[in-house]
Write a protein that binds this DNA or RNA. Sequence first.
RNA 1: UCCGGUGUGGCGCAGUGGCAGCGCAAACGGCUGUUAACCGUUGGGUCGUAGGUUCGAAUCCUACCACCGGAGCCA
Length: 466
Amino acid sequence: METLAKWKIRIKDLLDSTEYDIPVILRGWVKTRRGSKKFSFVEVNDGSTLHNIQVIADCNLPNYSDIEKLTAGCSIRVEGKLVKSPAKGQNVEVQADKISVYGWADPEKYPLQKKATSREFLRQIAHLRPRTKTFGAVFRVRNILACAVHKFFQDRGFVYVHTPIITSSDCEGGAEMFQVSTLDYDNPPVKDGIVDFSQDFFGKSAKLTVSGQLEGELFATALMDIYTFGPTFRAENSQTPRHLAEFWMVEPEMAFCDFEENIILAEDFLKYILNYVLENCEEDLLFLGKRNEVDVLKQLKKVVDSQFNKITYTEAVELLKNSGKSFEYPADWGKDLQTEHEKYLAEEKFHGPVVVTDFPKEIKAFYMRLNDDEKTMRAMDILLPGIGEIIGGSQREERLDFLQDRIKEMGFNEDDYWWYLDIRRFGTVPHAGFGVGFERVLQFVTGMSNIRDVIPFPRVPNNAEF
RNA sequence: UCCGGUGUGGCGCAGUGGCAGCGCAAACGGCUGUUAACCGUUGGGUCGUAGGUUCGAAUCCUACCACCGGAGCCA
């Protein structure tokens, strides 16, 4: 079998090189060209780093008239010599012996310019925006963050489970879901006045998943510790810089695990992945911090070194009531915490991560474990300054009769959850888990203010382009 | 879905009732071991869409659309 002796040389490696006067071949996209009839400076980037490499093309090159026409976006291949740069601005540069053009980019039509363009505009050309410095950095960091997620769990013996994307269970009853159907929308089969999904592809109504948690629990009660990491869908008409209709969620689920252990794991997890990007993406983070006018490095270090503050929901409500602050919606036991409340807790009161625990059962999902007071649940939210809720988790209700009661109370049909209840019928165990919004973590890490700018192709109401 | 803001050349913006402008980008020319290069010249517009007020609308009014921000829902 043939193998490649060496994969492509990356510009990052050339810029880091301590060897000079060596022959090199590089490929990439032109960022800018300047020069005269005698020579040209061509700056080339291949996405491996923020920095461009400067290529010097002498007018003696046979295709110099072509080189003079190079503009931003053109793809080229350069053969030449890596040399120490005589001028300021870079340590090394490439003296070109040969430059060939893979593809031109008509400068009249190519929308990316040297000058800064707005994030709003770049969203309209999301197919080209990874070529910009900012988005190149964001997506390199995204990659490292995803690596960190896997590394954390794999190092602890967790099994990565691929839970289904198409589901027929309305997991939590709350969230709006996307219908998955092959029925003819202009002429659907109708029975008793409503669409007859028994004639649909799956023989029943099917949706895109809003969480892999229920399926995750099934695997945790077999493989002990598992996690899912995949796309998740919400058909809510949410139009905020913190919401997407399609986003990626990390959901660990642990058997023989109680509420306290769950919180400790969540805290360890956040600290680990934040530290991992700190150690592996410092340059990109430094750049993003400057661009976004947020000291992300400092912010990340602060969380990594912090002890998370813990407070019960009941204590939080008291604290908010006695804060002396006038909120638009005053805190009131039994009501969900408002964004303004969460901001106060994370940003003004504790200046750091806050874990809020033991919420009233009325405002949380049916599967959470009821506390002995029968009023609150073993639920927790982790809040970060500037981002808000980044993790939501709980110990799950493992007692069959409690869970059945809860399903009835919520007005759900027990038959729909027969398999979920089976887990409690056969060798039930205490178990717990949480969900992490991957893009929200990435927002915190990069300082990007809009969540649409940390996912390659954002899906939001009114937009599924590309 | 509710509240607020914005929509003017490829991009960023000014113009708030009287000849549609500036910067960047682009084309052409010049100059330069340059580096957001620099200097000169040129081209580029149904002012978001539809209707209305007015002698006259980018500007005022109405509706709609899109985008941005805040709220709700949440991760």
